[in-house]
Design a protein around this nucleic acid. Structure first.
Lengths: 247, 247
DNA sequence: TGGTGTGAACAACTTCACAGCG
DNA sequence: CGCTGTGAAGTTGTTCACACCA
C-alpha cells in the first residue's frame, strides 16, 4: 500500500464490492475470498486484491476477508459512514422517479429538498411530503443545511445555467442526468447519467457483430477472465479555452 | 485509418459528438473544427481527431469538418441511421419515467412493449397507450417484432432471472438499471446505469478533498487539457467459474 | 496559413505470477 | 496448503508534435 494514484475505476469497483458485502453480511456470511467476491462483481480476483491494496492490507492469507470489517473499511474509504444530504433540481418524470427510488436511502443519501426551474412545477406536492421549491431558494437551503451534493435533472438547455448556480452555492459534486456536458471549475466533480449514450454503445456493438459475423469461436488466445466491459462516461474538464461556438 | 482495435471510450465519445453535431446542424452551422467540437464535448482536440481516424478521414485540412456529413458518418458508425425497437421490462417508477423520456425517441429508440414480473402491474395502462404485459409474453413479442435491445428496470433480485429470459429470446443488448451485475453469454452486451454508484464516486472525491486540503494551486505541471474524468461502469464478463456463493 | 491525420512517446490501468505468511 | 499482497510485465488508451495538404 504505497501512496500511488488511485485509478478512478477502482473507486467504482469498491462501490460494487461494498454492495455485495452488504448482501453477504445480511446473509450471515462471515468470511469471503477475493475470488468469490470478484466473481460476484464480475472482475478478476487479482484486480480486486490490487484495488484493496491501494488502501491497506485487509485480508488474512490462506483465509480471505472478514465480511463485516471489510464492509466497514470500504464504506469508510468511500465516505459512506455518514449520511449525505442531497438536493434534487428538476421535478420532471426523472426527478420524481429518483425521489422514490429506494436505492438512494439504502446507500445513505437523503434528498433534503427539491427545486425546479419551471414555475408550473413549483409548489407541487411530491412523494414523502416534498414540496417543489423555486430555484431562487437554492442558496438558502444549501447553506443552511450544508449540502454538498446535487442531482441535476432539468431540461438539458438549462443544465449549464443551473450548474453555475449550484457551483456558486458551494456544491462539490453533481450527478447530471442532462445530455449536455457542463463546465465546472476544478474542485467540483460531475458524473453523467446518460441512458441513450449507453444505448448507443449497445447499438454499435450489435451492428459490428452482424458485420463481422463470427470469428470468435476459434479464438483461444482469450484470457480466462475475458474483459468485455460496459463502459465509461468520460469527461475531461476544466479547460476554459478560447474556443466557443455561437449557439 | 487502420483496422486497429477501437477503444470503448471512443464509442462513447462518438455518441457525444453526434449530439453536438445535431445541435450545430439545427443551428445552421455548416462547418466545425476539431477544437470547437472537442471543446463542447469536453475532450482534447487530438483525441477527437484520433477517434475519427479509426474510421476514416472525414475532415478538410485547414478547414474542419462538414457538419451534416460528419453527423451522418458518425450515426452510421453507431448504427443509428435506422430506428431501434426496444422492450422495457419493469414498470416501476424508473420504467415509467423512461417511457416518457423524450431523449429515447430523439435518438431513434422506440419502446415496442412494456413487461413486468409483478402481476399487480400487469394490465395497467401507461403513457402512450402502453399496456403492461406479463413477462410470459416476452418471447412472442421479441420474436415477432425482431427486437434486439432491452431495458431492464425490475427489482435487483429479479435481474438475473429476467436477463436469462431475455438472452434466451435472442436479445443482444441490455441496458440494466438494476444494482446487481448480471451474467450473460458472450455476444450479449450489458450496460449498467447505476445512480448510487456514481454518487459514491462523488462522495469519495469530496471526502478526499477535505482530507488533502489544497496542494493544487501551485501545480503547474498539469497539461493544458486536464483530464479529470467522470467515470466508467466497468464490467468484465463471461467467466462462469467454479466459484459460487450460497445466496 | 491553419487545421487535419497520425506515428511515436507517454500515461494509465489490468493481469500475471509468485513470494510470503497464517 | 491456500489465499493474500504486490512488483513487474503486459495491455490499452491518451496526448504530443509535426508532416501534410486544401
Amino acid at each position: 500500500m504505497r501512496k500511488e494514484k488511485i485509478p478512478a475505476a477502482t473507486i467504482i469497483r469498491l462501490s460494487v464490492y461494498q454492495r455485495y458485502l452488504k448482501r453477504l453480511l445480511a446473509n450471515g456470511v462471515k468470511v469471503v475470498s477475493s475470488s468469490e467476491l470478484a466473481y460476484e462483481a464480475s472482475v478478476n480476483p487479482a484486480q480486486l486484491r490490487k484495488d484493496l491494496s491501494y488502501f491497506g492490507r485487509f485480508g488474512v492469507r490462506g483465509v480471505g476477508y472478514d465480511v463485516a470489517s471489510l464492509l466497514n473499511t470500504i464504506s469508510g474509504i468511500l465516505g459512506l459512514l455518514d449520511e449525505w444530504r442531497v438536493v434534487l433540481v428538476g421535478a420532471g418524470p426523472i426527478g420524481k422517479a429518483l425521489l422514490r427510488h429506494p436505492q438512494f436511502s439504502k446507500q445513505g443519501y437523503v434528498f433534503e429538498a427539491v427545486f425546479d426551474v419551471d414555475p408550473n412545477h413549483v409548489g407541487k406536492d411530491l412523494v414523502d411530503g416534498h414540496v417543489v421549491k423555486d430555484i431562487s431558494e437554492l442558496p438558502k437551503v444549501i447553506k443552511e443545511k450544508d449540502i454538498q451534493l446535487a442531482v441535476l435533472a432539468v431540461p438539458s438547455e438549462k443544465a449549464q445555467e443551473v450548474a453555475d448556480i449550484l457551483v456558486e452555492c458551494g456544491i462539490k459534486g453533481i450527478l447530471n442526468f442532462c445530455t449536455t456536458r457542463i463546465k465546472v471549475p476544478r474542485g467540483v466533480s460531475v458524473q453523467y447519467v446518460d441512458f441513450t449514450i449507453l444505448l448507443d454503445t449497445l447499438t454499435y456493438k450489435i451492428s459490428q457483430h452482424s458485420i463481422e459475423g463470427k470469428e470468435d469461436s476459434v479464438n483461444s488466445t482469450k484470457p480466462k477472465w475475458a474483459r468485455e466491459h460496459s463502459w465509461p462516461v468520460v469527461q475531461s474538464n476544466s479547460h476554459r479555452q478560447g474556443v466557443s461556438l455561437t449557439s
